[in-house]
């Protein structure tokens, strides 16, 4: 495939993969925890970028798939002792299936109406899971420690979950790139720019959009499964936390909407910044205010995000910064 001969994607994958090895090389658990979260955010932001940045559909409540994947996989692991990677894949597939059926009606909505509907869907699932006793209702579900025995104890399980998250992040980034560079991706961008014109040009928007939504649901769902596997506890609140979705949107905007690197850069910058603000004693109280002011400045003055800005300023780098 010609797309994979691009130097750009290999550079990105090597950089991300290399960074992921650091905690293992330095044997630092706290660094590993930070990276685990960071990779998860990269996955969330990149997935949202596929439906939002490429296709123009602002999936505000995208976190719903993180929760759904997490819950499905957790249930399988807890009740049927399904191996965690298998459970995560089943969780991902399940969430994709749900996205497919939700997508058919909901993707007919445009603009603000779509954004609001995705919030409604997330809140509906959150309140449903709060009442759904099979999945533990409001208190959620937790593992007995014996679940981790199959993986050589909780410590080892954490390590395995980390490796899985690294692989998932690389696959997500790769997928995001392949989509962007494909005919499929070109169709999505045509829909983003002008849906009615795209139809006249021969694109069936409904089909493309539903497929995209289905794909973009998969990665957050698997990430959710890995996150809650390592966590050992899943509850409706953290599983369907709308705020986290919105933060992921912010990361996409920060890094650069519609680019492959944008969501990665955005996730890293946002998370580092937040980490810095929270740990600094004088700034920790004001961290929300500072983050808000920064976001506002970016939204108002650097509309294209960091990557978009660099691409505009340094055309020579365009080939390397998709």
């Amino acid at each position: 495939m010609k797309t994979l001969s691009s130097p750009f994607i290999w550079i990105i994958l090597v950089v991300v993969g290399g960074a992921s090895l650091l905690p293992i090389l330095t044997n630092s658990v706290s660094l590993r925890e930070d990276m685990f979260l960071m990779l998860m955010l990269v996955i969330l932001a990149s997935s949202i970028n596929i439906i939002m940045g490429y296709t123009g559909y602002v999936s505000f409540g995208h976190i719903v798939f993180f929760g759904l994947g997490g819950y499905l996989a957790f249930f399988l692991m807890k009740e049927f002792q399904v191996q965690f990677m298998l459970a995560a894949l089943v969780g991902g597939a399940g969430a994709s299936l749900i996205a497919f059926f939700i997508g058919i009606p909901v993707l007919r909505l445009r603009g603000a109406y779509f954004a609001l509907a995705t919030i409604g869907i997330n809140e509906a699932f959150r309140s449903f899971f709060t009442n759904f006793d099979l999945f533990g209702g409001a208190v959620g579900m937790f593992f007995n420690f014996s679940v981790y025995d199959a993986y050589g104890g909780a410590k080892n399980a954490g390590q395995l979950a980390y490796y899985a998250m690294v692989v998932l992040a690389l696959v997500t980034i790769g997928t995001s790139f392949v989509i962007k560079k494909s005919k499929f991706g070109l169709g999505l961008m045509a829909i983003r720019e002008d849906q009615d014109a795209s139809m006249v040009l021969g694109i069936d928007p409904a089909r493309l959009k539903v497929l995209t939504y289905t794909i973009s649901a998969f990665f957050p769902a698997v990430a959710g499964a890995l996150f809650f596997f390592k966590n050992g506890l899943i509850e409706p609140g953290p599983a369907f936390e709308l705020h986290r979705s919105i933060e992921a949107l912010v990361m996409v905007m920060l890094g650069g909407y519609g680019t492959v690197t944008g969501p990665i850069v955005g996730a890293v910058v946002y998370e580092r910044l937040r980490g810095f603000l929270i740990t600094d004693p004088t700034l920790s109280n004001a961290h929300l205010v500072i983050a808000g002011v920064l976001l506002l400045l970016i939204v108002l003055f650097v509309t294209a995000g960091v990557i978009g800005w660099v691409r505009q300023r340094v055309p020579a780098l365009r080939r390397y910064l998709e």
């Binding site: 494909s182 005919k183 070109l186 169709g187 045509a190 795209s198 040009l201 021969g202 694109i203």
Partner: peptide, 12 residues
């Protein structure tokens, strides 16, 4: 876009 999704549905 026109060539990809038009009558001949050409590959990229």
């Amino acid at each position: 876009v026109g060539a990809c999704f038009g009558r001949e549905h050409l590959p990229l």
